[in-house]
């Protein structure tokens, strides 16, 4: 299976907003109110996210790229969020927000917190009619993004049939109307193409990596956006100079050379990026270096020493899985949440 996109395809970037693109705290009601009242100018993007997005939406490539934001934030925040993205130089093609007010009015309490019905439905609706499309999805570990994105990808790839989907939606306790909509979209989208190339999960909560292993190689947990950029460079979606932009943004934000090098080492140890690809990148960066400052030369130096340190590592790349036990994954996540709520056991244990 060729795991990266073919040339000439339209590349659709799907981004979650809170904790994926924006640094957001909504762990308490106070945080939630603060987030709601925040002005666009006060909202802060996660380090490197803006640079990565700008590199992906390079004007030369823009006509071949689409970007959709699907956020759990309420529709009432559209103006401020759109303004924030505009301030960052990002014009999304589609911006989907959660209709929380109508959920409250119609008494759909579970839909206010739940993400599966809303996000899966939004992803599927916005795919209807698409052809020759490759997708890159960006989410985080605070919600159920890996689960929802993988399920969506497997529906498109024809690996989750209607019976399986119905039982998954039943377990997720979706409302009838939500189930009906998702099932009807499934009828139109099932087996229309294996479009999702990678699902990047920003490890905002620093969840253990083995939580994502059951989803296979398609899901790539990343600690920061340099890691995502390196994977995208390996897949030839980004060029070396795009890596430089992300690198510089992170360096300005206070990332030390040691932290950046550790991020690279982590990817190699996990088998996500090969040592040979890093060697290639070091060579390409050296060509860019002439126009850039010390950040790049220090990074190249660290990159080369990381490569030398890991010469013994012969790690197999994570495998692509054709069968994912969605019901099992849903129940184990639910068990963890229940254990946390009633026994106080940390979610990360």
């Amino acid at each position: 299976m060729s795991d990266w996109m073919g040339s000439g395809h339209l590349l659709h970037l799907r981004w979650d907003l809170d904790k994926t693109y924006l640094r957001t705290d909504f762990d308490s009601l106070k945080d939630l109110i603060k987030t709601y009242r925040q002005k666009a100018e006060d909202k802060v993007a996660i380090v490197g996210a803006r640079s990565l997005m700008q590199a992906l939406l390079d004007p030369h490539e823009r006509r071949k790229r689409r970007v959709t934001f699907i956020s759990g934030s309420p529709t009432q925040m559209r103006a401020v969020l759109t303004r924030k993205l505009r301030l960052d130089g990002i014009e999304p093609d589609l911006f989907i927000l959660k209709p929380n007010l109508s959920n409250i009015i119609s008494g759909r309490v579970r839909s206010i917190r739940g993400q599966v019905g809303y996000k899966l439905g939004a992803l599927m609706r916005s795919y209807v009619g698409a052809t020759d499309l490759d997708e890159l999805l960006f989410g985080d570990d605070a919600e159920q993004d890996a689960f929802i994105y993988s399920l969506y990808a497997d529906i498109l790839a024809g690996r989750v049939d209607a019976v399986q989907l119905a039982s998954i939606l039943g377990a997720c306790k979706l409302y009838r109307a939500e189930v009906d909509e998702v099932m009807s979209l499934h009828g139109r989208l099932f087996n229309t193409g294996d479009a999702v190339r990678r699902i990047f999960i920003h490890l905002e909560a620093r969840s253990p990596l083995d939580r994502f292993a059951p989803y296979g190689a398609r899901v790539v947990p990343v600690y920061n956006y340099l890691q995502a950029a390196l994977v995208l460079h390996q897949g030839e979606v980004l060029r070396a100079r795009d890596i430089v932009s992300v690198l510089e943004a992170m360096s300005v934000a206070g990332y030390t050379p040691a932290r950046l090098a550790n991020s690279v080492q982590d990817l190699v140890r996990r088998g996500v990026v090969a040592v040979a690809d890093l060697e290639r990148l070091a060579g390409e960066l050296a060509a860019v270096e002439t126009t850039r400052g010390r950040t790049v030369s220090t990074f190249i130096q660290r990159l080369r020493s990381t490569v030398a340190d890991l010469h013994h590592v012969r790690r197999k790349s994570p495998e692509w899985l054709t069968e994912i036990n969605y019901l099992g994954l849903y129940h184990s996540a639910r068990f963890r949440r229940t254990r946390h709520r009633f026994l106080g056991i940390p979610l990360l244990d």
Partner: peptide, 9 residues
Amino acid sequence: DGLAHDAER
């Protein structure tokens, strides 16, 4: 893989 950690550090 089974431990919550910060790979950056």
